[in-house]
Amino acid sequence: MRLVIDQDRCKGCNLCTLVCPYRIFLPGKTLNRKGVVVPELDRPERCTNCRLQKLYGRTLCGLCVMICPDQAIRWEEEEPHEPHKVAIEY
C-alpha cells in the first residue's frame, strides 16, 4: 500500500508531523496550488501499515490518519504491487 496526502483536503496544520513514530511527515516548504503548505513525505514506504497491513489483515498504527483533522491522509492500493526495499533504522 502507498501513503498519500490529499492535496485538496490538507490544510497544512502539521499535526501529522507530531505523531508518526518514523517521522515520515516533515513540515512542507512550498505552497501547493490551493495555497497550502502540505507536509512532505520522507520515504513513506517505511510506514508500518503500508508494509504489514496485508500480513496481519488489520490496520496497524494509523495514528496519522486518526489525528488528521481534515481526513486528508489515506493508504492507496498499489496495482500491481511494487516491491520496495525498506531500511528501518532503530
Binding site: 485538496d8 483536503r9 490544510k11 497544512g12 496544520c13 502539521n14 499535526l15 490518519v65 486518526m66 489525528i67 488528521c68 483533522p69 481534515d70 481526513q71 486528508a72 489515506r74
Partner: peptide, 26 residues
C-alpha cells in the same frame, strides 16, 4: 470510517488544525 462521512461535504469548514475533525474521526 471514511464511508460514514458525506464525502460531497468535505473538506469541512473547520479552521486548519481544529481538533473537532480529529474527534469526528475517532
Amino acid at each position: 470510517y471514511q464511508d460514514w462521512f458525506r464525502q460531497d461535504r468535505l473538506p469541512h469548514i473547520y479552521c486548519s488544525g481544529c481538533g473537532n475533525g480529529t474527534v469526528i474521526n475517532c
